[in-house]
């Protein structure tokens, strides 16, 4: 079993992540919601580092909390949506009912599966990824498979990003017809 300090920190950040996520879905104001989501992402970054995925943790902070959430906040600012809308943002009772049912179903699945035999419980410092980090370093252990086995997928991702950039510019720009 992992030591006591590791366990306490794992549970602490897990609970903070859940609490921030609940605060995130219940806030009226989009800005407050976005900041709670950033908090959740930081907690997840901590968990990634504790699971010995240091590079993923860094990327989580840089790309998710740093870039993607800033884009969200930028759009909120651009469209001047910082004020909570006067119409209630939360849906009526049918939406809540469906959401509650879905939540119950998903949690029931978790409960049903939690009794099953799990893969070997891990001790920090063991397992595939810890071994890979020891052999190749935190970045190399991700880069090695990324640039060998998954090279084609990696190149296709660059095409996806190019398409997304062009698409965002084309969709987001003001049309000439509107100006006329």
């Amino acid at each position: 079993m992992p030591n006591f300090f590791y366990q306490v920190n794992f549970y602490l950040f897990g609970l903070i992540a859940i609490g921030s996520a609940i605060a995130f879905v219940t806030r009226r104001s989009p800005v407050a919601a976005a900041l709670w989501l950033v908090n959740t992402m930081f907690c997840l970054a901590v968990l990634y580092v504790m699971l010995e995925a240091q590079f993923i943790g860094v990327i989580q902070v840089l790309v998710y909390a740093g870039a993607i959430m800033v884009v969200f906040l930028f759009v909120v600012m651009l469209l001047n949506l910082g004020e909570p809308s006067e119409i209630a943002d939360i849906r009526g009772k049918w939406g809540k009912l469906v959401a509650a049912l879905l939540g119950i179903v998903l949690l029931a699945q978790v409960a049903a599966l939690s009794g099953k035999r799990m893969p070997e419980p891990f001790i920090p410092g063991t397992g595939y990824d810890a071994q890979a980090v020891r052999d190749l370093g935190a970045v190399g252990s991700v880069a090695q498979p990324l640039f060998n086995e998954y090279l084609l997928a990696f190149e296709l991702t660059s095409i996806l990003l190019l398409v997304a950039i062009v698409g965002a510019v084309v969709i987001g720009r003001r049309r000439q017809i509107d100006a006329r």
Partner: peptide, 20 residues
């Protein structure tokens, strides 16, 4: 934890009206 976060996200998608 992952399942709980996913459920919270799904509930958010179903209960909110603000597209962002």
């Amino acid at each position: 934890l992952s399942a709980v976060l996913f459920s919270i996200g799904a509930i958010g998608v179903l209960t909110r009206r603000n597209a962002i």
